[in-house]
Every structure is written in C-alpha cells, then in structure tokens.
Design a protein around this nucleic acid. Structure first.
Length: 506
RNA sequence: GCGGGACUAACUCAGUGGUAGAGUGCAACCUUGCCAAGGUUGAAGUCGCGGGUUCAACCCCCGUGUCCCGCUCCA
C-alpha cells in the first residue's frame, strides 16, 4: 500500500492504539509537536536500544556520550548555527555556503562574475551576475538566495534574572537608539545570558572529543555515539512526525585518519543500510543515495543518505556525511584548544621518525529516531483479507514490527474469564515481567478480538491459557504474522519467547 | 512563507438555519467460548477555538488553531 491514505491510517492507528498523540491536544494542539503514548514510548526506546546495541555494545571501537542539551553558546558560534540570529544570512545556491550578507565581498551590482561549479577546484566554470552588490565569500558566485534572518535554534536564557528586565533597563538608558542600531544593541543584551537548545547532538561529540579519547585511551579510528533530543525551528513541518521541531537523534561521529575517509564512508553506508533492512519487512524500500556534488555542504567531501520510499516518495532517513576535519578545526579555532590526535606508531612522513600528529577526519552517520519510528510503522502496516468466524470477508490490520522492536513482547490471554484461567494467566505475566520482558495481560472480550487487537499493536506472540492448560501445564503460542499456533509448556514460555526475540522469529 | 482542502463521540463518517446521528470501539452482565461471535444494558460530543449576522448558527460571515495536499524552503 503506497497511497497517501496509508498515512491517515497510520495517524489514526497511532492514536487509537496509544503510539502517538498530537501534543497538547485538548488545547487545540501545538504545531508539529507530538507525544509518544504507552506503546509509542516502548517502540521508540526499543529502536534507540537496538541502535545503541549495534553501534556501541556489539563493537569495541565506539563509546557513548550523553551530553547536556544546553551547551556553551560558543559551541554554536563555532559550528555556524548561531550566525543567523542577528544577521541577515544568504545561502549560496552554487556551493551551499551560508554567509552574512554584510561580511560578503563587495562588488558593484551588475558586475559579471565567474566561479567554479560547486565551489570546488576543477569544477566547471560558471558565469553569473552579482545582482545584489556582493558575491559568495566561498566560491565567488552570484547565484544567491534572499537575505533572511534564520532562527533555526530555540533561544532561551540562563540565570535567575529575566532578560526582559535587562532589556527594559537598556532601552530606558538609551532612548536615542532606534532601528538597526537598537536591534543590534538589544541583541547584545540578550546574548549576555542567551543559551540555545541544541539543534543536533553532534557538536557535543566534537567538543568532548579529547576528553573521550584520553579518558578511555581510544585509538583512532574510533567513534563516539550519542542519542537524544534536538530542537529546530523548521521552516516547514510536514508528514506527521517526519519533520518536527523537537525530535530524537541517534548520531555517531567516527574519527579516522585523513585519507581513509572514503573507505570508512563506504563501510558505514553498508552498515547503516543493513541495520534498517534487518528490521524491515520491505528492504527494497530502503536505499542509499549519494549526494550530487552541488548538494554537498562545503565542509563535506562526500555524503550519502539512507532513504526510504515513503508514501510521498523517496526521502531521507539518515545522512552519512564525510565531514573532513572541519568540525574539529572550527572548535580548535574558537576554543584555542588543540583538537588533534597523536599516533606514536605512525611515522611522520616529513621526518621519517615515528610519531604523527593530525586532526582526524570524521564520518557521521546521523539518524532520526522519530523518523525511524515513522518508517517502521509504515513498513509494518499490513491489511490482509481474512475470512472471519462466519466465513465472511474481513480485513485484518496487523503491524508486522520486528519482535525486538514491538512494544509488547507477548500478550497473555485466558480463553475465558473464569475457571481459574485468569489466575494462571497472571502467574505467567509475572514470570515475564520478572524476566524483564514487557507483556500485556488481556481478558476483555472474545479471544478473536484480543488476537486482532494485539495484531494492531504489533504484539508478535500471544499466549493463550485454555482448559487443557490446567491438565498438562501447556499454553498455545499464536504467531502474529501468520496466525499459526503451537502448544508449549508454561515452564518454558519465557525461554521460548526470549529465544525467538533473540533470533527475530516471526 | 504562498495557495487549496479538512476539522461533528475514542476511531471512521453522515447530517439539517429550528431538541445532535450511524457503524466500529469502549464499559457491565449473560451464553463453558481459539481468530473483530451472539444477546441485554450503558457511558460518551458546549459539532477545533473566538467573534459576528440572526428570533434562532454544527450549518452563513470574519478571525484564529491544528492537520493534510501542492509549491517554496530546509543541518
């Protein structure tokens, strides 16, 4: 099913079954903010846990980090995120540089200019006209966007004194100021206590590069992984949770020796694509797409997107960028700290002696956890024509989520609500919960409805307690994807489910 | 940011300028019951929000919020 209506069905199901709710719904909702309900929070946590397992626990060369959401404002000055708050910014359509219009090289309006395609040496030479009286400081091009003030980041202030007090005081003592001068002065006042919610988790990993490397004695190549909430004032929000202002990221910065980046980029592209495909019912709806040279940010020497075929078409799921030494250099420059790595084994090509100091290059697989959640819901959503008890056509809606990602690992269902069956059921539930497996006990309505309800919730296994259970201590295990049933001893139920989860059995 | 559409019960939707409807779901009980079973009963909506027109507005007008679809934009 690829029609746009599948999105409506997902949104409806997400609400009905407690996956995703509109934020602040009773107050009319808040633009592009979503809350994850009882099942949604489980799914999201499972996604992040699987990512962490693949990136950190299953290998020796990557370690974790959990940095503060609010960082020193200079972090964002160095990264370039802060520039847009007070200054009109312009995007170069040729090399993708974003720059301050007032700091750009001036040329007389109407002058003909020539520049290299993509801002890269050896690129095709293009010609254009500097219509606005300045050109791109990076490539010299004249193909520029309008001047705009971007407020990509959410700004707040730190400290007990409300910034408005400072502003009021300033205005009262500077009544002569107006227009741009006033704006600039007030911006200066605000900035004294201004802090920003991180627009990405990545920067903390660059900023803490040395601490992580030294404290754990990490040897290049190695990576730092982090998951967490990020915030962006997106110009456009769209497609349910696909692009929202507050979202969860799963990012890893992999530091490697200059010259090896192409190889590592290839490696990470393969790893990351395979990770998604491992959990997907439709691996053919996932692909890698290399960025065109004119798409690349000027600090990247290559970049791939992991894309998914959403109902609205192929779109991004994860970006895997080769960021060169740009970030470490920027932070070294702004902080005055030397952010480099010394390899005592490596011979220095200049002296021939062992010992080489260099600034590592970085490969960055940056994934969206909330985006992954949407992709998995879309991938898992199935409608099947199944005859009902009366032999009439009925539709079965089933979320074929990978068992390890499914919110409930199993549902325990007494066939009837009497004859001691509920008691047996509760005992089984207790065993699962003690084993750390999240399961649901459900005795409402007929057994068939309960199966279908859990199909919609993506519960991979249903354990049904029936009359026979009392005689031979067995229950039936019913599989979500094909509805087949088997009998297993209660004694082994936890182990059976655990083994199936381990293997990903459906 | 621009244009178009939508908003009525938890979900999917009817509806008329004059007392708010259906199906599903939900809750309770009954029927010894393995794939949305049958029966009985019940709860649930100030019709997104705020103004205006009118004797009377869910319906007409204005504003606003949210979502969707295009475009635009996009670390």
């Amino acid at each position: 099913m690829a029609e746009p209506e599948v999105m409506q069905k997902i949104v409806s199901l997400a609400k009905r079954r407690g996956f995703v709710f509109q934020s602040s719904e009773i107050y009319g909702g808040l633009r592009s903010a979503y809350d994850y309900g009882p099942l949604g929070v489980e799914l999201k946590r499972n996604i992040v846990a699987e990512w962490w397992r693949a990136m950190v626990y299953e290998r020796e060369d990557i370690v974790g980090l959990d940095a503060a959401i609010i960082m020193h404002p200079k972090v964002w000055e160095a990264s370039g995120h802060l520039a847009g708050f007070s200054d009109p910014l312009v995007d170069c359509r040729n090399c993708k540089e974003r720059f301050r219009a007032d700091k750009a090289p001036k040329v007389a309006a109407g002058t003909e200019v020539s520049y290299q395609e993509g801002g890269k040496k050896g690129g095709k030479t293009l010609k254009g006209v500097a219509e606005r009286g300045y050109v791109c400081p990076n490539c010299g091009g004249g193909d520029l966007s309008d001047e705009r003030r971007f407020n990509l980041m959410f700004r707040s202030s730190i400290g007990p004194v409300d910034t408005i007090e400072e502003i009021a005081k300033y205005v009262e003592t500077h009544r002569d100021l107006e227009g741009g001068a006033l704006r600039e002065a007030l911006d200066g006042v605000i900035r004294q206590s201004a802090v920003y919610l991180r627009p990405e988790t990545a920067q903390a990993m660059f900023v803490q590069f040395l601490n992580v490397q030294e404290s754990l004695g990490m040897k290049v190549p190695f990576g730092i992984a982090q998951t967490g909430r990020s915030f962006r004032n997106e110009i456009t929000v769209e497609h349910f949770v696909f692009r929202s202002c507050e979202f969860d990221q799963m990012e890893m910065e992999f530091f490697c020796e200059p010259g090896s980046q192409a190889e590592w980029l290839k490696y990470w592209c393969e790893q990351r694509l395979a990770w998604y495909q491992r959990f997907a019912n439709h691996p053919e709806r996932l692909r890698l797409r290399q960025h065109h040279p004119d798409e690349l940010a000027h600090y990247a020497d290559d970049c791939y997107d992991v894309e998914y075929e959403y109902p609205w078409g192929w779109d991004e799921l994860e970006g895997i960028a080769s960021r060169t030494d740009y970030d470490l250099n920027k932070h070294a420059e702004h902080s005055g700290k030397k952010l480099s790595y010394f390899d005592p084994q490596k011979p220095n090509p200049e002296t021939g002696k062992p010992g080489l100091r260099y600034v590592p290059y970085v490969i960055e697989p940056a994934a969206g956890a909330t985006r992954t959640l949407l992709m998995l819901l879309l991938d898992a959503y199935h409608e099947e024509a199944v005859p009902d008890a009366k032999g009439e056509d009925a539709t079965r809606v089933v979320l074929k989520l990978h068992p390890r990602l499914a919110p409930y690992k199993a549902a325990v269902l007494p066939l009837v609500k009497k004859d001691g069956l509920p008691e047996i059921g509760h005992d089984i539930v207790k065993k699962f919960l003690q084993a750390g497996l999240f399961v649901s006990y459900d005795e409402q309505h007929a057994i068939g409805r309960r199966y279908r309800r859990h199909d919609e919730a993506g519960t991979p296994y249903c354990l049904t307690v029936d009359g026979q259970t009392k005689q031979d201590q067995t229950v039936t295990i019913r599989y979500r994807d094909d509805m087949r049933q088997e009998r297993i001893p209660i004694e082994r139920a936890v182990d059976v489910v655990r083994e199936k989860l381990q293997r990903g059995d459906r």
